[in-house]
Computed example of a mutant assay.
Amino acid sequence: MEIKHIETCKNLIKNAENIVVLTGAGISTESGIKDFRSRTGVYQIAPEYILSLDYFYQKPREFYQFALDHLYHPDAVPNIGHEILAKWEREGKVIHIITQNIDGLHQKAGSNNVIEFHGTMKTASCLHCGESYSTEEMVNRYQTIDEFYVCDQCDTSHKSERFIKPDVVLFGDTGKWFTVEGFNTILHMIEDADCVLVLGTSLKVTPFSTFPQYRRQGIPLIIINIGETPYDTERNTYLIQESIGKCLSLMDEKLGN
C-alpha cells in the first residue's frame, strides 16, 4: 500500500464535512459474507436468473431456499470498516451511506443515515396487502408450512398475487429508491457532498454505478476496491486497491493525530 495515497485521502477526509459513502459487497466480504460475482462468489448460475422476479414467481420455494442459504446472514457482525464509518458519522464527517448490500451490517455497526438501495433481507412483504413478515418468521414458515410463501392475512383469486417476497430488489423488480423521487433524493445527496467515498464495489451495475458522476466538478472521489471501476482514471479520483478495513483504520488513525 502506498502511504502517500493514504496520506492524501486522509487529508481529503479530514477537510470534508459532508462525505457521501457508496458501498458494495467488498465491505461485507471482510465480515465473511461471500460476494456475488467473483470466482469465489455464491452463484453457480447467473444471478440475473435466480434472483429475478420471474424465477421467484415460477419457483418460490427454490428461490427462498437459495436466498435463505446465501443472502441471509443473521449471525454476521460488522467489521472495522463498518465501525469506522459509524464513528465518522457520529463525528459529523459521514452524512449518508448508500449501499448495495442487503445485510444490514452498517446499521448493526451504528450508522443511522443508511439508504439500502437494493433493499433488505431483514423482512418480507405480501405483494397484495403489504403485510410484513420478519425473515425469522419466514424461516419458521419455510420449515413448517407447505405454501409458506403465500400470505394468510388476505385473499385473492390467484395465490401468486399474494406471494410474500423478501424486501430486496430483484432483477425485473423495482424498489422505493428506483422511483423518480427516490432517485432525485440520492442525486441531491451526491451533489451536496464535498467528498465521495466508494468502498468495495466495481460500480458496474446500473443505476447505482452512475451515482459518482453526479458529484460537483472538482469534488474528490476516493475509491477503495480490489478490482477496477469505470472511474479509476478520472480527474480528482484517488484509487487504493487494498483491504477496506486496513485502509480506513490507517486513515482514522491519522485523523486522530
Rank of each mutant, 00 (worst) to 15 (best):
Q107V: 03
V150K: 08
S125P: 00
E7Y: 15
D173Y: 07
E137V: 08
E191G: 00
Y238H: 15
G81Q: 10
T99M: 00
E62N: 15
L250F: 03
E191V: 11
H70Y: 15
S249Y: 09
K254Q: 11
Q217F: 08
Y72H: 14
S157P: 09
P220V: 13
L53W: 10
E161Y: 07
T233F: 00
G24I: 04
T144F: 03
S28R: 07
Y238N: 03
S134Y: 03
E91V: 02
E147Y: 06
T237V: 12
F211E: 02
A67V: 12
S38N: 02
S202Y: 08
M189S: 03
C126V: 06
Q44P: 07
L255H: 02
E7M: 13
I102N: 11
D103R: 14
M138R: 06
V180F: 02
R90W: 00
V42T: 03
N113E: 11
R39L: 13
V42A: 12
D232R: 06
D69R: 13
F63N: 01
G81F: 01
V42F: 08
E30C: 05
D146W: 01
M121S: 06
I45L: 09
V21L: 04
S52L: 04
E161F: 00
K108M: 12
P74K: 11
F66R: 09
